[in-house]
Design a protein around this nucleic acid. Structure first.
Lengths: 194, 194
DNA sequence: CACATTTTGGACTGAACGATACAAAACTGG
DNA sequence: CCAGTTTTGTATCGTTCAGTCCAAAATGTG
């Protein structure tokens, strides 16, 4: 065999993710990445080949984590509307704890738009996965009578997805918790059965 | 006197704004700014002192334009709810025309968060101005009976503001027009009197 | 304990970065 | 038409950028 790694790859990706999350892709230098991860340049390039590639890994890591927690919330017990409420509450609580870091995916969409095909593919996949669980949740909510039946489940999903993005953006610009809560309440009433 | 300018300052700011809009602050080099504006480096630094200062001017320019058109929409004739509808429709139409450029303010919030005090001051001011006209519109809508009376006007304003940000973000990641329309419809129903 | 293999640290690369220096150019008031 | 002032183009500044190179270090295997 050969010399073993002195670091945990996943942990390094996590640290890199944090750095990109705060300062964006262009705003995070490879030097900053070295400091954030604690790795030397050699280790980073040896393991991740390029800054762009490391960013992709970080984005995947973030998206995977997000989908897992979000899916757990939306496939939990309870009525449809309760699960939507749980999603919004979780989002607000998370932003409260992190003092408004916002969302890496939202930031990435804002920074890249659809210019970078590799980034776009990740964003699209993440969006689709979210819309899928949100749509299922909306449909179940319509069946249990807690979600508005006059709307298409897919449309309600888009609305909820957009609302979460809006909340994350509000939080990132430093909006107060009460403001987020108000937005979430109104959004929830739009999803609820009348 | 002295040698006269060979360019229009406002026009240059407009071009710089477009560049920042597409690629962000960090993603736009001073070289790119020269090419976008058609100015030489000397002219840019002589007139705007720094990249950061030029960005501030571009941000102000964008915010001013936005507030003017948005205020016109929200202070026009018609019921409160009609004016909210006009706001959403206008947003969607604009994104349709520009093939999803999104919003410079949204992008800037995502890129900077609240790290840069000068940027934050601009963002806060812009947000306050938007919330003011939105709140007034909500209040008038409550008086004319077209807007939900059970909500605080300020909360409805936050909701509408967040919805527009969500729409711009959707558009920037390339969502279809129908999806934006669906989100706007649901948001509108949340604002409308029941 | 030597070998093959991989990781690691640090020096280094050329290119691009934001910003400046300076002299020629272009104007106006006298 | 000249003096004074500002703009402009070009060359250049030092720094930072993403990425490479290479020798030393660290392992398992024979």
């Amino acid at each position: 065999m050969a010399r073993p790694r002195e670091f945990d790859e996943r942990a390094a990706i996590g640290r890199a993710m944090d750095a990109f999350w705060v300062r964006g892709y262009e705003g995070t230098s490879t030097q900053a990445l070295c400091e954030a991860t604690g790795l030397g340049r050699s280790s980073i390039y040896n393991t991740f080949t390029s800054k762009h590639e490391l960013f992709m890994r970080a984005l995947d890591h973030y998206a995977d984590r997000g989908i897992v927690t979000r899916t757990a919330l939306l496939e939990a017990d309870g009525t449809g509307i309760e699960r939507f409420r749980a999603l919004f509450s979780f989002t607000i609580a998370e932003e409260d704890e992190t003092h408004g870091r916002g969302c890496l995916v939202v930031n990435t969409v804002a920074e890249f738009g659809d210019r970078d095909p590799e980034v776009k593919a990740r964003i699209d996949a993440d969006t689709e996965r979210h819309l899928a669980v949100l749509t299922a949740c909306a449909r179940e909510g319509q069946l249990d009578g807690t979600v508005d039946r006059s709307r298409e489940p897919a449309d309600l999903a888009e609305f909820a997805h957009s609302t979460v993005a809006g909340l994350r953006l509000m939080s990132r610009r430093g909006a107060r918790r009460a403001a987020l809560q108000a937005v979430a309440d109104i959004a929830l009433s739009a999803i609820a059965a009348k």
